[in-house]
Design a binder for these strands. Structure first.
Lengths: 190, 190
DNA sequence: TTCCCATGTCAACGCTTGTTGACCTACGGT
DNA sequence: ACCGTAGGTCAACAAGCGTTGACATGGGAA
């Protein structure tokens, strides 16, 4: 299939959509604004993507691209995961768009779930051997990762937003490491 | 000042507003829907609260009601804080409304910041003696607490949402304890 | 009773939104 | 040169929004 001339327009729309959804969330990001950013007519967006819902679905496609954790020394898992998350957050607004939208949009929330349960879950399963607590561990990592993103990038909570990247890694490493490798505290309360 | 008859209506509006903001976020929660829930006319909302912005400000008033942490044994701080947060989240939709709105609404984000920096910060300062890392510690506690709320109550991430309260406390206690009492890892890297 | 003000109702406004369909334009194959 | 079609423009639609102002009502003070 030859490269159509319209692919350029499609790409421009997707980029503008990602930026708007990331900055404004699902409902405040208007098709008109996205079209203006992409220097085209709003009707083009409809022609290429059908409706706003499908546009978001296309713009919010994302892959965590998790490295193979089973090849890492066990005590470096936490640091590696955080570094990777920070990498995936910066330089691409897709996760930002996903987070901002997932709070009020059902489809975005679904995709967020799929990201952390369907991608992070299996990656962790390779470490734990697929024990029954695997999903719980993935969920716990999600709470800390998303909480960090929320406070650092969305809410811009002073100290968290200004903290240098190295400090974030230093503080969060033990936490993630704990969720990944500590024995399940609910099976042996003491 | 005698109890006016309208106070009942005001209260009904505020309750309905909190529920709608909590369930739908700021923009999708409409004044018309709130008025219907409160069994009154939309114009009443305007008369009592001026506009949507002020209605939200009134509905989202909140106090963390943090206990005096300095009276607790140092090794029970983490568990006590989590228990308290879970208590404040359940049985009152205000925090839910605040979280859902703060992702797209500036005023809500401001209030969230004020909650965690202006209330949690000072409470932690009484523990650390007000060192320069106090605000950072408060921020870190915020990341884990809000991340938990996001995954458990908003996104309903399977395992995190279904985990019994006791399991949440058991898993998160070491994390919060770490943020509160561990020596700053950035000042002595090794 | 009379009057007044707090309380509440109603219909409409101006605006923005997602979405649609009719229309224009230009270029590549024949 | 012709023409079909991919690509793009334009104006308008219906619906929903926050918000407003004119109008009803009803109970307590005089």
């Amino acid at each position: 299939m030859p490269a159509r001339r319209s692919d350029q327009t499609r790409a421009a729309i997707l980029t503008a959509a990602r930026e708007r959804f990331a900055a404004d969330g699902y409902e405040r990001a208007t098709i008109r604004a996205i079209a203006t950013d992409a220097s085209i007519d709003p009707a083009m967006v409809m022609r290429y993507f059908g409706n706003k819902e499908k546009l978001f679905a296309a713009a919010a496609e994302f892959d965590l691209r998790l490295p193979d954790l089973s090849e890492l020394p066990r005590d470096q898992l936490g640091a590696a995961l955080i570094e990777h998350f920070l990498d995936r957050w910066e330089g691409d607004d897709t996760l930002m768009a996903l987070l901002r939208a997932s709070v009020t949009n059902q489809a975005a929330a679904d995709r967020m779930r799929q990201l952390f349960m369907g991608q992070l879950g299996p990656a962790i399963a390779k470490l734990t051997g697929g024990g029954p607590d695997t999903a719980v561990r993935a969920g716990l990592v999600a709470t800390q990762s998303l909480g960090l993103a929320l406070c650092r990038y969305v809410l811009a909570l002073g100290p968290v937003a200004e903290m240098p990247r190295a400090a974030v890694v230093a503080w969060l490493t033990p936490t993630i490491q704990h969720y990944l490798t500590s024995p399940d505290p609910t099976t042996s309360p003491r």
